[in-house]
Write a protein that binds this DNA or RNA. Structure first.
Length: 291
DNA sequence: CGCCAGGCTAGCG
DNA sequence: CGCTAGCATGGC
C-alpha cells in the first residue's frame, strides 16, 4: 500500500472533495461510513472515500488544504486528472456573467469541480441514470461492478473495478434485469456490445463537443441529456450542459430567459449566456439548487 | 394507494 | 419536424 498527500493550497479556486464526489457526476466513489450517497450530509468533511481506478483500490480524504490518499499504487497523477485540479476556477467564474444565482451557488461550496472520469463507466452510468434517483444510480452502478468487474484485493477485503466493455457485453440481459436495471437492461447490453466490437469512432468522440454528442447518441439509451453528461464528465467538454428535470426547474425559476421549449435550444441559450465552459455553471447550479 | 426519479424510444399526427 | 404513452423499480 502506498500513501501520499497533495497540497491544495495552490489549487486556484480550491477543492471540495465531498461536493465533487457526491454531486451525481461520478457514481463510483463510496464513503467509508455507510452508503449515504446522495443524502445531504452536513459534514462528511474529512471522511474517506474509496473507489477502484485503473486497477488500483484508492482511498482519499480531504483535511483542510490537503488531499490525503492511500492506494495499491501511486495515484497522485490520477487524482489530479480525475478531479481536474488543474482547472483555475477563479478564471472559469471570471469568464461567466456575474449574476446572483450563480454567485450563491458558487459560495456553497467553493471548490466543487467537474470530474474527468473514464469514458465507458461514465457512458453506462448515465444510461442507467434515466428516471432514477441519485442514490439508486450509485447502488446500481456499483452492483454492476460487483457482478461483472475484476476483483481487486486490498487490506484483506475485495473490491471491484467497473466492468470492461467485453465483460458487460458478456452479461445476459436477464442478469442485468436481475440487478434491477429494468428497462435499461437492453440499452446497457447493446451499448456494451457496440463498444466491445469497436462500433464507436474515437475520432468522432475526440472531434469536438458537437461531433461527440452526435456519436454518443448512436448508442441505445443515449439521448441528448445522457450524451451531454457523458460529454461533460467523461470526455471533458465543458460546453456540454446537461438539462435534466432539476436543471430545467432551476432555469425556469432563476433564468427564465434561458428556458426555451426544446432541449437543444435551451442548451444553446445557456451556452450563449455562460460561454464555452457553461458546463461548470450548470454543475454548480445543479449542486446548489437541487434541494 | 399515487407520484416521482440527472430520459429514451417508438409511434403517432 | 413536435408530441406523448410506456417503460421497471423502489422510496416517500
Amino acid at each position: 500500500m502506498e500513501t501520499g498527500s497533495l497540497s491544495l493550497a495552490d489549487v486556484p479556486g480550491g477543492f471540495d472533495l465531498q461536493a465533487t464526489v457526491e454531486s451525481a457526476q461520478s457514481f463510483r466513489w463510496s464513503r467509508a461510513d455507510g452508503d449515504a450517497y446522495g443524502a445531504a450530509t452536513a459534514h462528511g468533511g474529512d471522511a474517506w472515500y474509496h473507489t477502484v481506478a485503473d486497477g488500483d483500490v484508492v482511498w482519499v480524504r480531504q483535511v483542510d488544504d490537503r488531499l490525503a490518499w492511500r492506494a495499491t499504487g501511486d495515484v497522485a497523477d490520477l487524482l489530479v486528472e480525475r478531479f481536474r485540479l488543474g482547472d483555475d476556477l477563479d478564471a472559469v467564474f471570471a469568464s461567466f456573467p456575474t449574476d446572483e444565482p450563480l454567485a450563491t451557488a458558487r459560495a456553497a461550496p467553493p471548490g466543487l469541480r467537474v470530474v474527468s472520469d473514464p469514458f465507458f463507466p461514465t457512458l453506462v452510468s448515465f444510461i442507467c441514470s434515466a428516471r432514477l434517483t441519485v442514490g439508486r444510480i450509485h447502488a446500481l452502478v456499483n452492483a454492476l461492478a460487483e457482478a461483472f468487474g475484476d476483483a481487486v484485493e486490498a487490506d484483506g477485503a475485495t473490491y471491484h473495478a467497473f466492468p470492461r466493455p467485453a465483460q458487460l457485453a458478456a452479461a445476459s440481459e436477464a442478469a442485468l434485469r436481475d440487478l434491477g436495471l429494468g428497462f435499461r437492461a437492453p440499452y446497457v447490453a447493446e451499448t456494451a456490445a457496440m463498444v466491445a466490437d469497436g462500433d464507436v469512432s474515437r475520432t468522432a468522440l475526440d472531434g469536438g463537443y458537437e461531433s461527440a454528442r452526435g456519436e454518443l447518441q448512436r448508442f441505445p439509451g443515449v439521448g441528448p441529456k445522457v450524451a451531454d453528461c457523458v460529454a461533460l464528465f467523461g470526455l471533458g467538454y465543458l460546453a456540454a450542459v446537461p438539462i435534466d428535470t432539476w436543471t430545467r426547474r432551476i432555469l425556469e425559476r432563476h433564468y427564465p430567459d434561458l428556458a426555451r421549449d426544446g432541449y437543444q435550444t435551451t442548451g444553446d441559450a445557456v451556452r450563449e449566456y455562460f460561454g464555452p465552459r457553461a458546463g461548470y455553471a450548470q454543475t454548480y447550479l445543479y449542486h446548489y439548487f437541487r434541494e
